[in-house]
Amino acid sequence: MDEARIAVVVEDEDDIRALLTAVLEQAGFDVHGAANATHGLELVRAHNPLVTTLDVNMPGMDGFEAAKRIRAESSTYIVMLSARTEEIDALQGLEAGADDYIAKPFRPRELRARIDAMLRRPRQHASTTAAASSGAATTKTDDSSVVHEHRGLVLNESTRVVTRDGDDLELTRSEFDILADLLASGRRVRSKSELALMLRGENSTGVEYVSESDARAIEVHVANLRRKLGESPADPRWIETVRGVGYRLTHPEPSPS
């Protein structure tokens, strides 16, 4: 399902806001800018952007709080930008609902590449036969939507809707993509590096560089996903941790005798 290329830039420094606007316009976006988080929230509500960039250090409401409020009502890709480069700041941004965190000063080419990577994430995963035989039941509906079902969890790749025991779940785009990838992979372990590359829109060839912070970001996304699913890592219903490696789907429920 194609989405309008609309972006919202929330940045209190005029020159940086102008630079971000220029980079996104060159990428084909219709850009709306805000100098503070309150105005930024209004723009997100009004325009339903595909991408939103958020500065962390703003007067009044900071970027972390703004990300939480935006995420409560929008599935926009959130990219946080900050001069604060400590890993704890990046993790706090991801926990607030951001999809990516970029340190200032940033290179315009890097920002463009990171956004392009998010937008080209694969929406079709493993084949129906492979997924069904390894855990989740995967089917195609009459309108060609790919739907995964596992232990009361239903994910529709086309509509990007997830339900748990019939109740809708509000996931970030990154959380949705990780869950879709795990459901399609079934009992095959997906390493943190593989999941990080998937979120970057890249395929693993064994030579890509994935940093410790990238791996830690996957841990944060999975922890947030589990919290929303309402499951415990110690007794998982859907996602198992394979220590030192990554994650995989739990065994399917046994068929009633």
Rank of each mutant, 00 (worst) to 15 (best):
T76E: 01
A215M: 14
R164Q: 14
R164S: 10
H221G: 07
V154E: 07
L111A: 04
D168I: 06
V56S: 02
L182N: 04
A4N: 11
T163V: 13
R243F: 14
G63C: 05
A7D: 03
D12K: 05
N36H: 15
K140L: 14
L20I: 03
P252E: 13
D30R: 04
G63L: 01
T52Q: 04
M198G: 00
Q26F: 11
A90G: 15
H251K: 15
E219T: 12
T138R: 03
T129R: 13
V56M: 05
V162T: 04
A35Q: 06
L91I: 15
E110T: 15
T85D: 15
L179N: 02
I102C: 09
G230D: 11
T141I: 11
D99M: 05
G33F: 00
A46T: 07
L199N: 02
D181I: 08
A7M: 02
S144D: 11
P233I: 01
T141C: 09
L50W: 01
I88H: 14
K228F: 10
G40P: 00
G135K: 01
F29H: 02
L155Y: 02
A196G: 12
R71F: 10
I178E: 03
P122L: 10
T172V: 09
G33N: 05
T250Y: 10
D142W: 06
G201F: 06
A184Q: 03
G206Y: 13
A90Y: 02
T250H: 09
R200G: 13
G244W: 08
L41D: 00
T85Y: 12
G33E: 02
E42S: 13
E73G: 14
L229D: 05
S158T: 14
S134C: 09
G244V: 05
R109L: 15
H251P: 11
T159P: 07
T159H: 10
R71C: 10
A184P: 00
R226C: 03
F64G: 01
A98D: 03
A34N: 00
V51L: 10
E231Y: 12
E149N: 12
P236W: 12
D62C: 09
A126Y: 00
G33C: 11
T85C: 14
V161M: 09
S174Y: 02
A18I: 12
G206R: 14
N224F: 03
N48E: 12
V147L: 07
N57W: 13
S74A: 08
E73P: 05
R243N: 13
R187S: 15
D168Y: 08
P49D: 04
E3I: 11
L225Q: 04
Y247K: 11
A96C: 10
D116S: 15
R121G: 00
D12C: 11
G230H: 09
L20Y: 05
L197A: 09
V222E: 02
D99C: 12
P59F: 14
R190T: 08
T52A: 07
I178C: 08
A131W: 00
E208H: 12
E175L: 07
H251F: 09
A72F: 07
S257A: 12
L19C: 05
L41P: 00
K228P: 04
L50G: 03
N224D: 11
